[in-house]
Design a binder for these strands. Sequence first.
DNA 1: GGCTGGTGCGACAAGACATGCCGCAAGTAA
DNA 2: TTACTTGCGGCATGTCTTGTCGCACCAGCC
Lengths: 348, 348
Amino acid sequence: MADARDTSFRYLTLLQLIPRYPGSISTPVLKEKLAERGFHIDTRSLQRDLSEKLSTHFPLGCDDTQKPYRWYFDRDFQCQLPALDVPSALTLVLAEEYLKGLLPPVVIGQLSPQFTDARRLLDELSSNGLSQWARKVRAIPNGKALIPAELDETTWQVVAQALLEQKAIDVNYLSRTTETEKALILHPQGIVSRHSVTYLLAQVDGFDDLRQFALHRVKNAAISETAWQVRAGFNIDTYIQSSAFGYRQGSKDVTLDAEINRSVAWLLKETPLSSEQSISPTNKSGWYRLTALVPDDQQTLWWLMGMGANVKVHAPSTWRDELKASAERVLAHYLEDSDPHLSGVNHG
Amino acid sequence: MADARDTSFRYLTLLQLIPRYPGSISTPVLKEKLAERGFHIDTRSLQRDLSEKLSTHFPLGCDDTQKPYRWYFDRDFQCQLPALDVPSALTLVLAEEYLKGLLPPVVIGQLSPQFTDARRLLDELSSNGLSQWARKVRAIPNGKALIPAELDETTWQVVAQALLEQKAIDVNYLSRTTETEKALILHPQGIVSRHSVTYLLAQVDGFDDLRQFALHRVKNAAISETAWQVRAGFNIDTYIQSSAFGYRQGSKDVTLDAEINRSVAWLLKETPLSSEQSISPTNKSGWYRLTALVPDDQQTLWWLMGMGANVKVHAPSTWRDELKASAERVLAHYLEDSDPHLSGVNHG
DNA sequence: GGCTGGTGCGACAAGACATGCCGCAAGTAA
DNA sequence: TTACTTGCGGCATGTCTTGTCGCACCAGCC
């Protein structure tokens, strides 16, 4: 890449090699990595770069309690190279607002330097505070935002690293059924984030089956010495579709045929259910005919349920039946109080 | 910040001043901005920096068709200063997966250098492709992901910039009611992203009332010469709560009192509805009593509706009535076909 | 205890490099 | 045409970088 002695570029390479705080890197390792990238310099020069040049201009820290000194960046330092432009910054703010309800705070914390950077830019945009961007941008998420489960920061870091670098991990896991903590060795195979809970898919050491572990119930995670167990032919999509998450998801799409009222029609014209969808008027005033090719999954069914009486499903018949049955059960709930003699209606 | 003549640090400052491609910056302006930051250098030096130093090491472009040359970064170049660590990269991938269903592709495109960076890091992590991170991470969003409305890139950029820098904009807007395109001057006051549609809140030039404009129906947006109209005392939260978006949102929270079945209980134990929530067993096997302080909004009601017969609401009575009425209407939908003599049941 | 290897650091000299200045050329606006 | 702006090559100067050496410190290890 860079062959010759170009000081400033070497500085930049150097800065990219230094990790953020929880991590650190020692001088000899840095020298080696620099050499890999074509910068063959004396150890002394490297030392000078770090302690005289870079650390005066950047929030660098140095752990000099051990002899190969270890260098690291301040925990929250961030520097984008083409600096953020205004639209990107606004997008980041919007994205953060959305993600707040979806991911554990700790995971968002991983991205916080970026978000902070965006906010800082917007703040500086109008140093007089005129912009007040914070009062101008809101996201109203689609679903009800449940409060994401609490998650330990190191847990997330260890799991992410183990998953990607194919390592096994030692953990304590709080079993939901037995309510006891148990030490396990896990072989991570995947991560699924569902609603506001993040699950680790892993094999327990010594077993062949894949199990789900809610990340917020994992304690004291650490990379294990045990060698990682390969799971041949694992495909996460297949796994999810195999209803492992209660998503009775037929592998094929189905054609949804329904009547919808005007408000739903408007909604779907702007944000379609699927790329293959048609909406046409019916002879019933204020009602439209919807045809769409949609996945056969729980999500879609829930969405239909949430639309309530604004949607009337004709096909597939399984959904139609399910919606009808669900309505009957709900009604039974509320009738059994006011009309005690009707309490025999099935609500199982 | 940096007072003296420190070449490498000046380079870095320089790089931060150069925007990504659609934008560009001219040499004299750069010189001025550098001076603002304490770097008083000769124009010649700046020229040398750009054309000899930086452009050999960075993907810089130069428009030399006009005489004050203009410099810019490659469209997709990105360089994080403390380089991304593995957990952050994984988080970014997860965030992207979530946002895909929530924001228009163009808006996500704003962040794409970051996402691309994350993906590249993960790819390089296992040059042999062993990691296959893409097969290991999935997000299953809470709501049904509708397809976000198409949105023009420049529209987003112009609107974002105008909003933050307090400028008026010239646009062509496709009215939903009249289905005609109309040239307007808008005074942006806020942005609300709702479901998958992004709305601009703005006053039309010459009017005092605030209107909503779906961003994907805005064409040919451009910063206007017209001076921006201030809207005194505008508060976006108040505006949203004033049911402007159909969110009949009482300003006060309400106490939800309901019976829930085991699966919902588990869900809520891990991801609570609110920070003040209690779940206790009832004498009915498999059912639990839920009490929670929740906002009085449409979102929560929809969520309850989506839970179907797994939830039985006792209070507030308005919700209870609404759920019951909704179930009745749904049922009527489906009964009127199979039992024609029942078609008289109200479904308005 | 002494030896050794690894590391940090001050000093120094050689040489590379950055910088300001000048002059020239090309294009543009008055 | 004239004045102005901008880019660019060249050059002298002075600063800065860099490799080398010597010394100090620390931790094992024989």
